[in-house]
């Protein structure tokens, strides 16, 4: 059994047969097929906190979707959220920029602050929140407009009309898309490939100079090559932005993120709800997890 994965295929870990390993005799540190991103330095303890979640629970109507999440997200880092589907990763992510406001049954308890400002205090304008905290979605969602207008639309409505051409170019360069599209800026964005579309969506987000980028499984609809290019891009982006990424792909989290939050489903008490099991440096999560459930998950014995 090969323990070193050389390719960047996002699926190889899941494909490997782990059943051979007897859970009882397996070493505490499971044989990892995961390269932990080596580019990152040890986290300095005094990192600026961007998001601070304290005991956050989310309800959809009567149903408790996620319970008691507490975590801090740090500036200019990539934070990953992993876990089986349905455990509330998207829910928590969308709570960070008030995207859940459009769900009428949505209710959040606990405290959720952004640079010390309560995101859910009265008087907070969700539009102002989203202007600072951008989002990239699971499926690329370019507007049915030209490539140029996809990028230029938001700056225009936000009143950033000066030097729009430069702004568009800068955003496209920032998303590593400029060279591919510079000759067809006026053509429809829908003609781009899936990976290009997703980078366009990233470009669209950074064109308005946000503070944070939230990415909800941004590569799940993409092929491995496009996935690799987006992962590379994220490494560049973290110099300027704080990134939070939800991914179902553990290797991706291991490759790109400094910090990883592992969510799971808790079925105790007859109620299915998502919980945050463990939150730590990515290396710790993947090599010395403190919780048995995390270990089971990252070694592929679960999910």
């Amino acid at each position: 059994m090969s323990n070193k994965t050389q390719t960047r295929s996002p699926y190889s870990v899941m494909d490997e047969p782990h059943s051979e390993i007897d859970a009882a005799t397996a070493p505490v540190v499971a044989p990892l097929a995961i390269e932990v991103a080596d580019s990152k330095d040890e986290t300095p303890p005094s990192r600026e906190v961007v998001f601070d979640l304290r005991d956050v629970s989310v309800y959809y109507g009567q149903a408790l979707a996620v319970a008691g999440v507490s975590l801090e997200i740090h500036r200019n880092q990539i934070t990953a959220m992993i876990g089986p589907s349905g455990c509330g990763k998207t829910t928590i992510l969308r709570s960070l920029n008030r995207m859940n406001d459009s769900v009428s049954s949505f209710r959040l308890t606990g405290s959720c602050t952004y640079h010390g400002n309560d995101l859910y205090a009265s008087g907070v304008d969700a539009v102002e929140v989203r202007r600072r905290i951008g989002m990239v979605f699971q499926r690329p969602n370019p507007f049915p407009k030209s490539i140029y207008d996809n990028i230029g639309w938001a700056p225009r409505i936000l009143g950033m009309r000066d030097n729009l051409d430069e702004r568009v170019e800068k955003a496209l360069r920032g998303a590593a898309l400029w060279d591919e599209v510079k000759d067809r800026l006026k053509t429809s964005a829908l003609g781009l490939s899936g990976g290009q579309q997703q980078r366009l969506c990233i470009a669209r987000s950074i064109a308005i100079e946000p503070d944070v980028l939230l990415l909800d499984e941004p590569c799940s609809a993409l092929d491995p090559i496009s996935t690799a290019s987006i992962e590379d891009l994220m490494q560049d982006l973290k110099n300027d932005y704080t990134l939070v990424i939800v991914t179902h792909n553990m290797q991706q989290a291991a490759r790109v993120a400094e910090r990883t939050a592992f969510f799971s489903l808790d079925v105790s008490g007859g109620q299915r709800k998502g919980i945050l099991v463990e939150y730590d440096d990515t290396a710790t999560i993947f090599t010395r997890p403190a919780d048995k459930r995390t270990e089971d998950y990252v070694t592929g014995r679960f999910g």
């Binding site: 952004y114 640079h115 010390g116 400002n117 995101l119 205090a121 008087g123 907070v124 304008d125 539009v127 102002e128 929140v129 202007r131 600072r132 409505i157 936000l158 009143g159 100079e209 503070d211 300027d240 932005y241």
Partner: peptide, 21 residues
């Protein structure tokens, strides 16, 4: 990216007031 102060309160300000209207 330093052009904006992200720590200021999250209330509508600047041109967002007019856009809100």
């Amino acid at each position: 990216m330093a052009s904006l102060d992200y720590t200021r309160p999250l209330t509508a300000s600047g041109n967002l007031r007019r856009r809100r209207v």
